[in-house]
């Protein structure tokens, strides 16, 4: 850990270096061989609400360094799948392994601490906090002092706070949120809030990032920005990304692999080219045209 309290170390922007250091320490794979291995395995998941079958025997895995897109019509169970992975819904059957550790029965905050971080379809920010505080709040599990230390505000708590703030500013810098960093989130525009949410997920030092429709309701410029951030995160921080998205253009451009769901059933999996040719996918979702 850099000692950002030293004069020499203090600067305006670290260009994600601080966050990168944190993440690199915990990366699951080191060489290109491991890159092909699955970090997250979802095996035979069944999920139903009463009589409604939301997920039916779904298996999917996410490899060390890829962008996996999950597509499918509305109500296909995409968000439910992410909810099951992050422990918000409990699957009736099936298991989830993360880094060969079974996390099916873990509580949500433990899963988040393991490094499975996500954003939400309907923005779920802490609307009463400022942008900076939202991102620092995302760092909660990685702040190294207890509440008593915080209350008394010992010097080391002060240093830790400054360090966390440096990381947060780092992320703000990366996501180009500088102009709104002091604003209360509830008053921001939709596109900006989506970006803050991505920043909060990044602050949690993800080892895998689940993005639930990060580009919904954005215009072309904003979509391009968001796609750039996603690719940057994937390339520069080397974090695997699971992406739910309806914009086929974006998905075909940035995804390494695509997984297609239809009414809770997995119908196809493969590279964008394969998916484009797949008859089942065309009839269920893409359509001819």
């Amino acid at each position: 850990m850099r000692d950002i309290t030293k004069k020499r170390e203090q600067r305006y922007s670290y260009g994600l270096a601080l966050l990168r250091e944190c993440i690199e320490k915990k990366r699951l794979w080191t060489n290109n061989e491991d890159e092909k291995k699955a970090v997250l395995r979802v095996e035979n998941i069944d999920l139903s609400f009463g009589d409604l079958r939301a997920l039916n025997n779904v298996s999917v895995d996410v490899r060390g360094h890829e962008i996996l897109a999950i597509i499918g019509p509305n109500g296909a169970g995409k968000t439910s799948l992410l909810n099951v992975i992050s422990g918000f819904y409990r699957a009736q059957r099936g298991d989830i392994y993360f880094n060969e550790e079974k996390i099916t029965r873990f509580s949500s905050h433990k899963i988040a601490e393991r490094g499975i971080c996500r954003t939400f379809q309907n923005i779920a920010l802490y609307s009463g906090l400022t942008v900076t505080d939202n991102i620092i709040a995302g760092r909660h599990p990685h702040i190294n002092y207890n509440f008593l230390t915080g209350m008394i505000y010992f010097p080391w708590a002060n240093r830790e706070e400054a360090y966390q703030r440096a990381i947060a500013e780092d992320i703000i810098d990366f996501l180009e949120l500088e102009h709104v960093r002091g604003s209360v989130v509830g008053m921001l525009a939709y596109g900006l809030r989506k970006r803050v949410e991505l920043g909060r997920a990044l602050a949690l030092e993800p080892r895998i990032l689940l993005l639930d429709e990060p580009m919904a309701g954005m215009n072309v410029d904003e979509k391009e920005d968001m796609a750039r951030f996603i690719i940057d995160i994937n390339e520069f921080l080397k974090i695997p990304i699971v992406l739910i998205e309806h914009d086929m253009g974006v998905v075909m451009d940035i995804a390494d692999r695509i997984f297609v769901l239809d009414f809770g059933n997995p119908i196809a999996e493969g590279s964008p080219e394969e998916i484009k040719q797949n008859q089942k996918v065309i009839s269920a979702y893409l359509g001819t045209g």
């Binding site: 609400f49 918000f88 939400f120 379809q121 779920a124 639930d212």
Partner: peptide
């Protein structure tokens, strides 16, 4: 409660 509405929370 006994008959309270348990809403399935969504995200």
């Amino acid at each position: 409660g006994l008959f309270g509405l348990v809403r399935i929370e969504r995200l």
